Every structure is written in C-alpha cells, then in structure tokens.
Amino acid sequence: MRERQKILALVLAVLVLTVLAVILWLPSRSVKGSVDFGIRDENSNFHYEVGEQLSFVVSDSGLVRGKDLLWELGNGDTLHRNPIASYTYKQAGKYLVTLRLEGRLLASRYIQIVQAGEITAIDSVPRISGVHEAYQDEELTFSAVGQGADTWLWEFGETGTVDAYERQVNYAYEKPGNYTIRLNTNTTKYPIEHKITILPRFEKAEEVVAVDSLGLAQEDIRRRLQIIANTSVRDKSRYREQINYIRSTYFCSPAGEIAVVVNGDKYNDFLGYCQGLHFLESNPKRRVQIREVKIDNLHCVTTLQVTQTTIEQ
C-alpha cells in the first residue's frame, strides 16, 4: 500500500511540474498584440499579376522577431520566411494567403491574381464619374476614369458643341432639364454617355449664403484618410473607426466596390487603398501626405480621386 502511495505521489508531482513548465514556457513563445501583413506588387500598379514578384510583409516585425513563420500561399506552396516572403504565382485565380506560427493562425487574406493582359483591357475602357442629378447653376465635377486615353472631348448637351478638353472638368448648367453627357476619347470608337437631370433653382427672390457641401465632404474624407495614414499599425480600433465613418456617411454601395484613383493613374478599391495607407505607417522613413480628395457624388460616392505625395524622411 505504501509503495502505491509513493508511486501516486511521484506521478502527481511530475504532472504539477509539467503544468508549471508549460505555464512558464507559453508567454515566451506566444505572440503579443495583433499581427497582420501587407502585400506589395513589383510594379506598384495595385494589381497582382501572373509572373509578378509579390512581397508579403509582416506589418510589425518586432512581434515575430526570431520566430519561425509559415506562409501558406493558397495553391499548395508554402514558405518559411520572417518577416518578408517573396513569391510569384504562375496561374491566375483567387488564393487565400495564410500566415501561421507553430500551427497557430496569425492572419489570412484572399488575393486575386490576374493576367497582365486582362488589366490593360479592363482599365483601358473609360467611363464617366459624376452625379446623375443636380441643380441649375450648380458647379459640377466630371472625371474620365480609365487608363490609356490622352484626348478627351466633353459635350454636356446644352450648347450643341464640345465644351471641354481635360480629363477632369467642371460645368454648370444654365437651364433645367434632362441631358446626355457624351465623352469621346482617342481609345473609344463611340462616345461614352452619362445621363443627368438638372432641377430648377428656386431661390431667386433673395440672395442666400451658399454652403459648399461638396467641398466640406471632400475635406472631411481627406482628413480621415490622413488619420489612417498616420495611425500606428497596432491601433486597429482607430483605423476601423475612420473606415466605418466614411463608409456609413458617404457610401451607398459596399466599400469593396468603391474605386479609388490615386494621382490620376493608379487604381484600387477603397478597402485595399486604406489598408495600404495604414500599412505604410510601419515604415518610419516614408510618410503619405493626402493633398486633396475629390468625390463624384455627395451622398452616394462611387469614386474617390485622391491626390497624395510620399515624403521620404
């Protein structure tokens, strides 16, 4: 009996020591904080292309320094890299990229790999970005969205002639009515059309103080995008707060369907653009300054025209 008690006590002692060892060992092996990663494409055109080298970069390398990271590329391939992994996809498709540490999921993201020829074909088809309803004498902004064109001929349907020749133009209708805006470019065989209804202006009796609602909205969005660019990658709550505010205040469509045109020639969806802004904060030598934001509609934005510069520090 005494022998069995000794054996039982020895087993219990071993179990207690094992539990204590695990408790002491776990903190040193765990990752504290929220780990995420960003994706950089080789030609910086915001598209992930077949044959292009992509870099998967941990947003805060200090959280995983010295640890063995496993990158799962979604097509059966894996890489052991820390904190940057480079990879080239050979086939187009949608892939789930997953980052793991010792079997534990840290972050994952779907990416779409496309053929380079598809990008040119899609982006070269222009379209008109602008409101569909406005008031008489209200100054409106219209933009030609799409790559490849370098000649733009705008007809706003009121004068019967060509009214403007720039990629982004302003126009105010003198008379109410229904109009068809036509845009001819050097890359299109037929004009692109855009319907608009101009409502009569009623405040003729007395002079009123004009409120530039569109300008206030554009400055509001610009300021919040700058906050995203300045926010630490660890501060997820502030990052999401700005995105949710812009989305609920100005969008009628899902944020992933809102186009962002950067400096007139680089394209991305709203969520991808904001993720890129937030991720750049991790590089202390580069900062993004949001200079100006233009929107195509005050209440149902579909396109953001962003002018920004990168400051090397």
Rank of each mutant, 00 (worst) to 15 (best):
K67V: 06
K67A: 10
K67F: 02
D68M: 09
L69P: 02
W71G: 04
W71F: 09
G74F: 01
G74H: 02
G74M: 02
N75K: 03
N75R: 02
D77C: 11
D77G: 13
L79H: 09
L79F: 12
H80I: 08
H80D: 13
H80P: 06
P83N: 13
I84A: 13
I84H: 12
A85I: 00
A85D: 01
S86V: 05
S86G: 15
S86I: 03
Y87I: 00
Y87R: 03
Y87M: 04
T88E: 04
T88Y: 04
T88L: 05
Y89L: 05
Y89T: 03
K90Y: 08
Q91D: 04
A92S: 14
Y95Q: 02
Y95F: 02
L96Y: 01
L96K: 02
V97D: 03
V97S: 01
T98D: 00
T98A: 06
L99M: 05
R100G: 03
L101H: 15
L101C: 07
E102L: 12
E102T: 00
L106S: 10
L106H: 06
A107R: 07
S108W: 02
S108H: 12
R109S: 07
R109N: 11
Y110K: 11
Y110H: 11
Y110C: 09
Y110T: 08
I111P: 09
I113N: 02
I113S: 10
I113E: 01
V114D: 10
V114Y: 11
A116M: 11
G117Q: 11
E118Q: 13
I119M: 00
A121Y: 05
A121D: 09
A121L: 14
I122L: 14
D123M: 14
D123A: 13
S124G: 04
S124D: 08
V125A: 12
V125F: 10
V125W: 14
P126D: 01
P126Q: 07
R127Q: 10
S129T: 08
S129R: 06
G130I: 01
